[in-house]
Write a protein that binds this DNA or RNA. Structure first.
Lengths: 197, 197
DNA sequence: GTCTATACGTCGATAGAC
DNA sequence: GTCTATCGACGTATAGAC
């Protein structure tokens, strides 16, 4: 019999992933395995038993974040909404949802961006992005409207990461409403007199 | 007198920054000072003479990238364009300009994102972003149009970083044309029937 | 099967010779 | 101004307690 009290290996793994997220958020990029292990209440060797390398731990952390984000989209899906673009609308709401504060949003994005430098993480992130794009393309919106709306949502979401300060919360809410409106009535965008003048 | 042949300290610094960029692009995040120094033709100790720490070297690299990006915007400024939104149009062109290939764009963005995890780099990036936002806000466009256009350009620019695959080059060019059109005629966006339905 | 303790190799940083 | 030599810290690997 092992040494732990009532704690399954899965619990320990989750504990370690959560500790990694917290320590990296607090200490930044240079967080050590000792820090993470101590924060989870185990030794560094104990950590290595569950995750053979630091990269594997960070890969698991990245996967949990990607799954979490996918969960946010699903949570924003409106059961009464059966019209084309329903998934895109959930995507917009998930991306533009107000976070606790700007700093938290910036740190969360910085964490993902940082993990992207690990090849294994870049790979699963790319696979996730491809699946997400496929879901969005299957959502029934005209391609050029989808591209505009997704790009705008992505850009607005990334803004805090770069540290800029373009407009406040009210303007962000207005942008969210208008992007969602475009998904409901794509002709608004398509029928603008683009080639006149 | 020192030991070098005809090379000024400034030359050596530029050489080391260029070597850092190249080695990090090739080897990824784990590039060592030895690798970078060897690639520039000096020893690790020689590198450390010019940059007291690895962070300082990477800070200089980040600054050079930020300056380079600012230069791209200035290069896209149309001398004959005096209308409101001229700086925003240059910003859009600089961000959506086709790079050599998608992989190069992704690596370039990944480099910046990776450097952002260093506190000193995050600070200068934030200062740069604030100055850029101030320039954009002073460009004479209605705030809600500016926000949409900048968010869409940012998001389209970041797309390769996440590894997704939403549409091709032609669609990107169309998006660029339409965003620029909106800066020339903001009323197109403002006068849409947002609250109807 | 789960974890602790410990040893090993590498890297960033420092000191001092030339 | 650049080098060699060396130190301390970290990621990795492993032997063994329970």
């Amino acid at each position: 019999m092992g040494r732990t009290a009532g704690r399954t290996p899965e619990d320990t793994r989750r504990l370690l992933i959560a500790a990694a997220a917290e320590v990296i958020r607090a200490r930044g990029a240079g967080a050590t395995l000792d820090d993470i292990a101590a924060h989870a209440g185990v030794s560094k060797g104990g950590l290595v038993y569950h995750f053979a390398s630091k990269d594997e731990l960070l890969r698991a952390l990245a996967q949990s974040r990607l799954d979490e984000f996918r969960g946010w989209i699903d949570a924003e899906l409106d059961p009464d909404d059966e019209a084309p673009g329903r998934y895109t609308r959930a995507y917009i709401r998930a991306l533009l949802a107000p976070e606790q504060d700007q700093a938290a949003a910036r740190e969360s994005i910085a964490l993902i961006a940082q993990l992207m430098t690990i090849p294994a993480v870049a790979e699963i992130a790319r696979a996730d992005a491809l699946r997400l794009d496929a879901d969005l393309r299957a959502d029934g919106l005209p391609p050029e409207v989808l591209r505009l709306v997704v790009a705008a949502a992505d850009g607005a979401n990334m803004a805090p990461f770069w540290g800029g300060d373009l407009g406040g919360e009210d303007e962000l809410r207005q942008l969210e409403r208008r992007l969602i409106r475009l998904t409901r009535e794509p002709a608004l965008w398509q029928n603008l007199p683009w080639d006149r003048d």
